[in-house]
Amino acid sequence: MDDHESNREPDAPIRLEVNRRTVIETGTTALLLAALPRTAVAADSVKNNKLPPPPVSVEFQINGRSHSLTVDPRTTLLDALREHLALTGSKKGCDHGQCGACTVLIEGRRINSCLTLAVMHDGQSVTTIEGLGQSENLHPLQTSFVVHDGFQCGYCTSGQICSAIGMLAESRSGMPSYVTEDLTKPAAELTDAEIRERMSGNICRCAAYPNIVAAIKQAAGMLT
């Protein structure tokens, strides 16, 4: 951090010279990355009269590859994936665990990557949409979403697909859901109602729900 920033008044507005041209020339992400974290840290350290907390190291397996990162402890898993590892398939929708666009699999279980810190997952395995298939070799769920037109804008789709993979694994292991009639029976058949309830953590604002359900239902048959 340079002196100019640390001497800035904590409440002084942060001036960002952004116009259409600079956005086009530098790209929004690069510009915001360069400007925001340093000023945010500077404001904190001024206010608390102390230096920012030391960065933390984290090492995890992402889509089968080992990655080591040194990050600010505030970095969410989602931001680590998107901003540090350029894995932008996991999407930032609400950033508060309400929409499911950021769904990834940790050790095979689906979670919201926006509501967990990267450092909490040291030593664990993470699967994102990038780890499921490639354009010439799609995962059966990806194929099924294409066949059934399970999206419109596509922003929620990677979260929907990662969530569906976790959901099918939960269902196969006999986990019940809120709509499961009899809790004492080991497994419930994946009816439309079961799929809808189990996928309720993934919002689709284009409302492609009927096609998402159809896509998951078909893929479930193929994957069992």
């Binding site: 689906r110 969530s163 976790g166 939960e170 019940p176 859901s177 809120y178 499961t180 309720s200 953590g201």
Partner: peptide, 16 residues
């Protein structure tokens, strides 16, 4: 208890 848990949040949140 099982029913109450399953009535809360989403599957992703319940996993965490």
């Amino acid at each position: 208890l099982s029913r109450a848990l399953l009535a809360g949040a989403s599957a992703q949140l319940r996993n965490k």
